[in-house]
Design a binder for these strands. Structure first.
Lengths: 229, 229
DNA sequence: GTCGAACACGTACGTTGTACGTAAGTCAAG
DNA sequence: CTTGACTTACGTACAACGTACGTGTTCGAC
């Protein structure tokens, strides 16, 4: 009995995402999205629950790529490798659409893809011998680091705006009083010579080393006992 | 030759902050803030560079409390203790005004208080024997975890809305298909029985353990060699 | 053909940030 | 005390936003 729909939610999603990727988050309005689809503004409301719902759709679209490609037997891999794989896939997916990051950071997320990703991460962490509260702590530490790192790249003290150059980091550092902020200036130099990929990898190294050194606050590690790298 | 100002930036700051704390971020508009101050909307523009500047003022106000109280000789303390002290002070300050967190997460921060906090954290981390790139990685790991944890409490999968109860966590978990998300359900139970303070502390434990186990990727630790707790 | 439900979408309203203009206030100079 | 230059206060007005509401259209079912 229904009239056929002119669009699908998929179409809305991709149209909205490409609009944001091309011209920033501010360029996404009900009217602009409708114009991009060649229709009237109020039509959007037939597919999405207002502006809130539209932004939720965007977040889902970005996070849908957070799960790494399934390999043959991912469950057999070392939990450190699997943890790193999941964390990096999540980070990469978020980073692919920088203009959506503010939404990802502020909106409550409970879409299937994110739940799937969380469960996969927990499966990996559980194989380090953790259960219950210890598993929770490990989960919080890893996910906290991933989102926090993405946030830092977007708006942290050493971040660079989309229209800026890498040189902006050292330029800003040079503007600081050298006698008050010697270390900030030092790591600004290191940041300019580094890349986000290296820093993310190194940060994960620290985190995983911490997880290795305290397998479960009492329970010995049970999985294949390859020692610290 | 100027006319005397009716207000100070401090007054704006506190008025805006109390408005947001009381009625949420959406309640802060140019008109509502002006009404709270007993003046016209356009007067605000004499103190602040538009809406953007007003939000920056809010962020500064919250982050101004991020530096822990100065003790007599904080520089003598163990770097682990000092790192934890700074991370917790930052987290506490952010958590004190939950409605401002979305702004803190999305706005680029470069105010003096934050720089001071960053430099203090770097001073602490440097005493673990790190320099240059390794110091940067450690800095990124700690700050990333702190902001990421704050974000997770605001909008993460296990977070609770301001009007919700602790029971909401387990309620949501119970709504999940138990055979697909066993671990998520498990840590939801642990989260309901835990507190953010405990989880933050435990996460920092993991991170600091990781920092201990890899002092500097080559350089031995130089400070007072109290071993792992 | 007729009916009813789902959809498309134009119109209109309240709210927002803010450009602009004007009036009022203050100090330095005469 | 008067004048002039300049800063501040703030009312008005406008563009842009999200969206409630109403109307017209299009389809499947009978």
């Amino acid at each position: 009995m229904p009239a056929p729909r002119k669009f699908s939610r998929e179409q809305l999603r991709t149209a909205a995402l490409s609009l944001v990727d091309a011209h920033g988050l501010a360029a996404l309005t009900m009217r602009s999205l409708a114009a991009a689809l060649g229709t009237g503004a109020m039509t959007i409301y037939n597919y999405v629950d207002g502006r809130e719902g539209l932004e939720g759709l965007l977040v889902e679209a970005v996070l849908a790529d957070a799960l790494p490609a399934v390999t043959e037997h991912p469950e057999d891999a070392d939990w450190r490798i699997e943890t790193r794989r999941l964390a990096e896939a999540n980070w990469r997916a978020v980073r692919a659409h920088p203009d959506v990051i503010p939404l990802i950071l502020t909106r409550r997320i409970a879409d299937p893809a994110s739940l799937e990703h969380g469960e996969a991460l927990l499966r990996a962490l559980a194989r380090s011998g953790r259960r219950g509260a210890d598993l929770l702590y490990a989960f919080r530490a890893v996910t906290g680091f991933v989102t926090g790192f993405a946030q830092a790249e977007l708006a942290g003290p050493l971040s660079i705006a989309p229209d800026e150059d890498v040189r902006a980091i050292t330029d800003r550092a040079r503007a600081l009083p050298a006698e008050r902020f010697p270390y900030l200036i030092e790591i600004a130099g290191a940041a300019a010579a580094s890349t986000p990929e290296i820093e993310f990898h190194a940060g994960l190294d620290v985190l995983i080393a911490g997880l290795e050194s305290r397998p479960s606050a009492g329970n010995p590690e049970r999985s294949a006992g390859q020692d610290r790298v």
